[in-house]
């Protein structure tokens, strides 16, 4: 079975949201994905990294870790921050829930990740940080 992995660290600057999703798309391109599959992954990564920046670090400086793994035709993406953490993960995952309504955010981040990927796991500890693990199985060629 084909396997590959990569790890990337970058500061929590909003410019890196685009950087992160393009990097994951380039990494996933070795699976010959369809345009639709690639768009799904890019959108989910963008949501996870944006959450790390605006909620995890609340726009202060921190490090975001991005890990990707390929096992056969399955892609696993992990987005890790060492920021504030989430008090109630179940609540945060509810559609339309936002902890910062003043920011004109839609509260749809986790819903988008869930919809566009096959699985989503959120591990978080207040004061320690958050780890988002998403997987997607790419169609057979």
């Amino acid at each position: 079975m084909f396997q590959n992995e990569m790890k990337l660290e970058f500061p929590s600057k909003s410019q890196n949201e685009a950087f992160a999703r393009v990097v994951v798309a380039a990494f996933a391109s070795q699976l010959d994905p369809t345009i639709e599959e690639l768009s799904d992954v890019k959108t989910a990564v963008s949501e996870a990294v944006t959450n790390a920046i605006i909620h995890g670090y609340e726009n202060t400086q921190g490090t975001v870790v991005l890990k990707c793994k390929i096992d056969g035709r399955k892609l696993t993406v992990e987005v890790i921050d060492y920021g504030k953490g989430i008090e109630d993960v179940e609540l945060a995952r509810q559609p339309l829930y936002t902890s910062r309504p003043e920011l004109e955010r839609s509260g749809m981040g986790f819903t988008v990740m869930e919809t566009f990927m096959d699985s989503l796991e959120v591990e978080s500890e207040p004061g320690k940080g958050t780890r988002v693990i998403m997987t997607k199985e790419f169609k057979q060629l």
Partner: peptide, 13 residues
């Protein structure tokens, strides 16, 4: 060519 949920907030706003 790309939009994530941030765009929803912009349009609703």
């Amino acid at each position: 060519n790309f939009m994530d949920s941030s765009g929803i907030g912009v349009i609703i706003g």
